[in-house]
Each structure stands twice: as C-alpha cells, then as structure tokens.
Amino acid sequence: MSFGDQPAYLRVAGDLRQKIIDGTLGPHARLPSQARIRSEYGVSDTVALEARKVLMAEGLVEGRSGSGTYVREHPVQRRVIRSGYRAPGLASSFRQEQADDRVKGTWEARSSQQDVPPGVAERLLLTAGDRVMRTEYLFRDEGEPVMVSTSWEPLAITARTPVLLPEEGPLGGQGVVERMAAIGQIVDNVVEELSSRPGSADEMTALGGVPGHHVLVITRTFHVGGRPVETADVVLPADRARVLYHLPVR
C-alpha cells in the first residue's frame, strides 16, 4: 500500500511517529492537541483521535488525566539470552531464564499446590485432577522488573522429595535440571515456543508497564525421556526485551 492509499488517521499517526523517532518530539514532550492535529493536518476530530489511539497502542505515547498525551520515555532494551548450556555454579532460577553471566539478577517466588490447569495439563501430559506445584516468579535486573514467570511441576514426580518446593530445601533456588537430577530425573530435552500477546493487568503491574501492551511469552518445557517434568510461561515486556538464542550444533 502506498502512502497516498493509507487512511487519513494512519498518515497522521505515521508523521507523528516519525517525529517521535527522530527526536522532534522528545521523551515527555506533549503531543499536539486534538484541535492542533485537526488544524495542521486538515482532518476531522475523529481522524485526530484515531491517530492518537494508534500511537498509544504502539506504546509511543501515554495519556495523563487532565493534562494531555505525552511521549513516553524510550525504553532501554535488555538482551535475554536463551541457551541449552548451563555453566557450573550458575544453576540458579535467574540463570535458568537468563543465560548471561554478566547479568546479576534477583528474584522473588511463591509456590502453592493446585489442580493442574487444562492448558498446562496438555503440556505436562496430565489429566484433570492431577496435582502440580505452581510457582510464580518476579525477576529483577539492577532492581528493575524484567520478567515474570509461572512454572508447574507434577507432584507425582516431586512429592515427598527434597525438591518439592523449587525455592526451598537443600536445592532451593537451583535450576530444574539440577533439582531433577537430584531425584534421579535426568533432563535430556528442552522445548521452547516464542509467541506474543497483550499483557494482562497483573503482568504489566508487576513489570511496570501499561495493561494491553504486548509481551513476549516463552513457553518452556523440560523433558526426561519424553516425559515432561516441568513447564513454564516466561513473560517479558515486548518493548524492553530482545530474545537471543544460542543453539548448540551437534
């Protein structure tokens, strides 16, 4: 589609977007009012409003009650490295999600037992009513929230073992591979699927973002001989994360 064929609201949004990108409208600058957009671009109020909605949906601007619409601070993107390699001594929960030894992260976690949710049951090859340990994580890098994660482990595997609670006991805070090895479950395969969707209110509150803005979701499952022993959803703000994969060649 050529520029001239675009709907008017997209043409206006495109011009304002370029001004934000090139710095003409810098961070915290006030976006032109609806009346000014209407006057400068010769469009209707409806077109001006829709153009602003586009920029808000893209996360470039934010509305402030009673004040107007302002250019958001340009987010600093952080690299999230995914790798099958785990160096000795780096087998922590944070390292499991960020295989970069330059990152000194911290995390909070809480665990509880529950019936396996339907979608998770399919991933873990379980049936309705089977019990799992559900653990929620919030990861920080230099104090800033960078990702949230929810994991599920079948209690049929971990119940009455020292690794029942991922963050407690003799192997608390270690990665899945190390914890499972301690009870004779040798992980030999990890599957990850990357997707994108709007973030939930809870996710974006934890990550310091705006509900509805897109997040990247890494759906990860550890296997032992074809049997899933843990699955997790790792959620990152799409505008602040770049996912890099290191894949071994055999």
Rank of each mutant, 00 (worst) to 15 (best):
P198W: 13
L10G: 09
G143E: 12
D130S: 08
S2C: 09
A29V: 10
V234L: 13
Q18H: 14
G66E: 14
Y85F: 15
A99R: 09
V176I: 08
R38S: 06
M1K: 13
P237N: 03
A201E: 09
E97K: 08
S33G: 10
V61P: 07
P162Q: 00
S65P: 12
F3E: 14
Q174S: 10
Y70A: 14
G23W: 01
R242I: 14
Y70Q: 08
V80N: 06
R250T: 09
Q77M: 11
T158W: 00
L31M: 14
S83L: 01
G173Q: 02
E62Q: 08
L194F: 03
G225F: 03
G184Q: 06
G184W: 01
A87G: 08
L60T: 01
V249E: 07
G63T: 06
P237D: 07
V120M: 07
D239G: 07
L124G: 00
P166A: 12
G209V: 08
D141Q: 10
E153T: 14
R242Q: 07
T161Q: 02
S33T: 05
R134Y: 11
V103R: 01
A156K: 05
E203A: 12
R64F: 07
T221V: 03
I20L: 10
K53H: 12
D100I: 03
S65I: 08
L194A: 05
D15R: 13
Y70C: 12
D239P: 10
A109L: 02
Q174H: 13
G169H: 00
S33I: 01
K53L: 11
Y85I: 15
R17M: 11
G59M: 11
R17H: 13
I183C: 05
T69D: 04
V76Q: 04
G63R: 04
P154W: 13
L16N: 14
E144M: 13
H74Y: 07
L49C: 07
V217M: 06
A232S: 14
L31E: 02
Q114H: 05
T158I: 03
G173V: 01
E50K: 13
R123M: 13
T135N: 06
M147K: 15
Q114W: 05
L125S: 15
I186T: 10
A181Y: 01
R250A: 10
D130H: 02
T158D: 11
S44T: 14
Y9V: 00
P237R: 00
H74R: 13
